[in-house]
Design a protein around this nucleic acid. Structure first.
Length: 421
RNA sequence: GGAGGGGUGGCCGAGCGGUUGAAGGCGGCGGUCUUGAAAACCGUUGAUGGUUCCAACCAUCCGGGGGUUCGAAUCCCUCCCCCUCCGCCA
């Protein structure tokens, strides 16, 4: 959520930012609502001050057993007026907040202009996007041939776009997960958490999925949602809390399955592990002081790159343009891994600095010094990495001419073998 | 799921419907004392919004929401959470 004061004080800045995002926004409606709210609020507060004073007098009169009916009658009318003004102020605020909650974050100055993925900028490349000296197969063929993936049974158990890993395939999933969590906790200073996989609507509001993107989520009859990413759980780990001075930054990592309805994505990437209703992910998350968040984003990306480098998977780092960024982010780098079987780079991690956008929604604050005023923190999140896509990348990059998969050195201890198949 | 108990300031814990933002204690901060520290004593110690413009003033907040009342932490309704016992269960 943007700072409401920003809309009042510098609407032109907000308008310019929305243009960069290629979004339209009627600021006049917001400004009108805000002045309506303030007008009613000021009037109501004046009347409340009067009521408080007179109520004190009424108490005194009653204590002395004197007549107070005149005051009481007057305050009854004032009370009705206050009620009407409160309703007016609340209605205006509710409408204002409803609109404000649907406004995306402001892009950072360092984010390039652009409308869509075409305008993203490749900032660096690691490794060679090479093809083997035999016909490279996509991971679903490799996995299917070795009996590591079973799409028919996955669809029977659930429905299309769910996956079933079998035998060494399932073991590879677990190995990748363990490798990542071990790396982040032992080398990068993250605290591991194992969160709930169901989340409350309030949590989804804080991280930014609600109210705008409900159709992308699975909702349970009980009112809870299946989490689409543990970014939600990690954002809400410290919702409504104030960090003591000197306790930032805080780094967290979590494994969780992620559930996405993928509404409107029919026909896209329908084969393989790339686009599923459920996938596993290891997430990295940071709560930091505002002035450090730009640097923290760079190290977050580096932590994600470490996973790919550790696995020996070629990739490139892409800086998203303003029009291609997610709702809550002010700056985002995507990591795209090379998939020789698919013959292209595929997104495998997205690392974002959300600034105070989520912190304001979730009231996540810190004190700069003991006894100081609470200030909003900055939050950052990054996949470290999407496990299903990592599985696919390992299969495609380590496939061998005989149809087997060589296990990357870093995973051999977790797999207990050097070759799959 | 059933029965009962409970949710008050950073923490513990009082609170006849009327100066209760809220006693008391702990913790924190400042000061006195001390070579320094401890102890003791004194003072201080929340958030949000608004007016105003930086010093004040006002309003709101005692789990969330709604209601009764001139006035609610205190009464009523509802939801959430926690604890105990029973049932069920990995």
């Amino acid at each position: 959520m943007l700072d409401p004061k920003l809309i009042r004080a510098t609407p032109e800045v907000v308008a310019a930012a929305m243009r960069r995002r290629h979004k339209t926004l009627d600021l006049d409606v917001l400004i009108t609502l805000e002045s309506r709210r303030r007008e009613a609020l000021t009037k109501a507060e004046t009347l409340k001050a009067e009521r408080n004073a007179v109520s004190g007098q009424i108490a005194d009169l009653k204590k002395r057993k004197e007549d107070a009916t005149g005051h009481i009658e007057a305050m009854r009318r004032v009370g009705e007026e206050i009620k009407a003004l409160d309703i007016e102020a609340n209605a205006a605020e509710e409408e204002f907040m409803g609109l404000l909650m649907a406004i995306p974050n402001l892009p950072d100055d360092s984010v390039p202009d652009g409308a869509d993925a075409e305008d993203n900028i490749v900032v660096r490349t690691w490794g060679e996007p090479a093809l083997p000296d035999f016909p490279a197969r996509p991971h679903w063929e490799i996995g299917g041939a070795l009996g590591l993936l079973d799409w028919e049974r996955a669809a029977k158990i659930a429905q299309a776009r769910f996956s079933l890993f079998v035998g060494q395939g399932a073991r590879l999933e677990r190995a990748i997960q363990s490798f990542m969590l071990t790396l982040h906790t032992e080398q990068h200073g993250y605290t591991e958490v194992a969160p709930p996989f169901l989340v409350a609507p309030e949590s989804l509001r804080a991280s930014g999925q609600l109210p705008k993107f409900e159709e992308d989520l699975f909702r349970l009859r009980e009112g809870l949602y299946l989490s689409p990413t543990s970014e939600v759980q990690l954002t809400n780990l410290h919702r409504d809390e104030i960090f003591d001075a000197g306790t930032l930054p805080r780094y967290y990592t979590a494994y969780s399955p992620c559930f996405r309805a993928e509404a409107g994505s029919a026909g896209q990437e329908s084969r393989g592990l790339i686009r599923q209703h459920q996938f596993d992910k290891v997430e990295m998350y940071k709560f930091v002081a505002p002035e450090t968040s730009a640097d923290e984003l760079e190290t977050l990306v580096a932590n994600a790159e470490d996973v790919l480098q550790g696995l020996g998977l070629p990739y490139r780092v892409v800086l998203l343009c303003a029009g291609d960024m997610g709702f809550s982010a002010l700056k985002t780098y995507d990591l795209e891994v090379w998939m020789p079987g698919m013959g292209k780079y595929v997104e495998i991690s997205s690392c974002s600095n959300c600034g105070d956008f989520q912190a304001r929604r979730g009231q996540i604050r810190y004190r700069r010094e003991p006894g100081g005023k609470p200030e909003l923190v900055h939050t950052l999140n990054g996949s470290g990495l999407a496990i299903g896509r990592t599985w696919a990348a390992v299969a495609e990059n380590y496939q061998q001419a005989d149809g087997t998969i060589r296990v990357p050195d870093a995973l051999q201890a977790f797999m207990g073998t050097a070759v799959i198949g």
